[in-house]
Amino acid sequence: MTNNPGASLPQKILISPALTPTKISGRQVHFLFSIRQVEDILKETPVYPVPFSPPHVEGIAKWRNHALPVISLEKRLGLDIRSPDAEFQKSTRLIAVRALDPGEKYIMLRVSDAIRMFSLPISYTPAPSVGWLSEDSLVKGVYEWDEGYLLVLQLKTEEVREVGSGK
């Protein structure tokens, strides 16, 4: 018996294919989020651009009476991004993610609508070479799994804001 019934539940993760047309060695890049990180998945939420913001920051969006920054992970990591057309917003979602900052802080990430939930464990191995990805403090780990590459991110405000070399 355990005092914490939730402890026996399998941990769940969300995996979203990156919005990049580029495949690395013919394999798709994905982002991995723990289900605890993700507070909400929103469809067609208005984003208000902020003048003079860096290319990877789309703007701000309203979520639970807060104005959260909306980030493009692909642009932040220097990956190509599908050219935005009229369908772009419809085929994407915004996810409100808890940032790893002191205090409760959130950011919004634009992800593919093909975001899926998995129960752990899933089969993955550390990627042997990540030369295609510039060294970046935002990336905590790169793994290979059945469907391509998995990027695990360190979502801190400081890391999200900074654009590393080669971007």
Partner: peptide, 28 residues
């Protein structure tokens, strides 16, 4: 009124440090 996220920096933050939250929209 809410301070804009520190994810913004430089000119964006200098010009628009705060945002007004209205029911239907956000106003810098």
């Amino acid at each position: 009124i809410e301070a804009i996220s520190p994810v913004f920096k430089g000119t964006a933050l200098d010009w628009f440090p705060r945002v007004l939250k209205q029911e239907k929209q956000l106003i810098l």
